[in-house]
Computed example of a mutant assay.
Amino acid sequence: MRAAIYGGPGDIAIEEVPKPTLETPTGAIIRVTHTAVCGSDLWFYRGDSDRETGSRVGHEPMGIVEETGEQVTSVEPGDRVFAPFVISCGRCEFCRRGLHTSCANGDSWGGDNGGAQGEHVRVPEADGTLVRVPDRYADDEDTLRSILPLTDVMGTGHHAAVSAGVGPGDSCVVIGDGAVGLCGVLAARRLGARRIVAVGHHDDRLAIATEFGATATVSERGDAALDRVRELTDGGVDHVMECVGAASAMEMAIELCRPGGTVGYVGVPHGVDEAGLDVFSLFSDNITLQGGVAPVRAYAEELLADVLGGTLDPSPIFTKTVDLAGVPEGYRAMDEREAIKVLVRIDGHSE
């Protein structure tokens, strides 16, 4: 089979690799039809985080079940499924608490599982990981395009909103205009927020934020951005969603959060250790910091229901589509801000 392989900073290649095989009675083999390039993939692509050269990449798979182990009960060969970015068993203490990313039997999509930017993956825990798409939508390309973000960014944006405590009638600020931030805007609207201020640096992305429900957008930087958000929100808000991970974004989130408020953070931390977190501001203003890596499997069914019901559509985040051979170009386009998020159709064509 073919899969995307990391060769070092700036180097993604499509190579022939062994197809994964079924190894456990709880597992399944999936023929991947759709996947994506994630903003977090850019950390290793840019050389900003460590990754073993020669490793398979990708963590947002959707496809068709080819084979299942004898203990699998939730899916069968021929089913259309999608899977979150972390493998989970569904039965351990943490999965039962909805914290699938801390699964005692969890795993990633790297290594010999196949890498989700490839033609096949092995799911060692099929019942706890895979989400079945109803048959009537299994070949509906528009619907599948809307479902694919549930593997990661839509669930992550939702986790930001939930962690920040966003509810009906609330005012909130979303920091970040990448795919997660845009999905955070969608999530805040879905949860009933009255005022949603989206902060970013790219007019085309902020236009999508407005389409998704932002009532105001802010493109200024630094202190000018802080001043503009405070002007729009009468001094700040009780609910701030940090969807970037950079130290500057976390600092802005804390600055904009009113005393007694909550910062919901889901951006993969980058450079925060070096910059230092202003814990005293959190302490003195009784600001709650809540969030972390999103347990998107916990949100999958409720978000899927809304997608299928026509009330949730995150698909506009995909601004470029490539086939498997085009994955290296997809990384380049995202790295150079030419695309918000790249959809990969394994058997399809580039757009």
Rank of each mutant, 00 (worst) to 15 (best):
L191Q: 11
L144T: 08
T143G: 03
A198P: 12
C183D: 09
L186M: 12
R195E: 15
I208E: 04
G192L: 11
R195G: 00
V185P: 10
V180M: 09
G167W: 01
A161G: 07
G178L: 07
V185L: 13
G155E: 04
C183E: 10
P168T: 06
I208K: 15
I175S: 02
A193E: 13
H201E: 08
G176R: 07
V199H: 11
A160S: 14
T143D: 02
G184C: 12
V199E: 08
A207K: 14
I175V: 15
V185H: 10
G184Y: 11
R189V: 06
G178V: 07
L182D: 02
A164M: 06
P149F: 11
S163A: 15
D203T: 01
G155N: 01
A198M: 09
L182C: 00
G176W: 03
I175T: 13
H202N: 14
D142Q: 07
M154R: 06
M154F: 04
G181W: 08
A207M: 01
H201D: 07
G181T: 01
V166Q: 02
I147S: 07
G176Q: 06
D203K: 13
V180N: 04
V162M: 12
G155Q: 03
H159M: 12
L191F: 13
V180E: 03
G200H: 14
A160N: 03
L150T: 05
T156F: 15
A164G: 12
L150F: 07
G176Y: 01
G165T: 00
G178T: 05
D177V: 09
G200R: 08
T156M: 13
V174G: 13
H158S: 10
D152S: 05
R194A: 15
V180P: 08
A188M: 09
A188D: 02
G192N: 14
L150A: 01
G192H: 11
D204A: 14
H201F: 04
V197E: 05
L206C: 05
A207N: 02
G184T: 06
R205D: 03
H159A: 14
A187Y: 08
L186H: 07
R195N: 14
L150S: 02
D170T: 11
A179C: 05
H159F: 13
H202L: 14
D177H: 03
L206Y: 00
G178I: 03
H159V: 05
P168K: 02
I208F: 11
T143K: 01
P168M: 10
A198L: 14
G157V: 13
D152G: 10
V174E: 04
V173Y: 13
L144S: 05
D177G: 03
M154V: 00
S171P: 02
V197A: 10
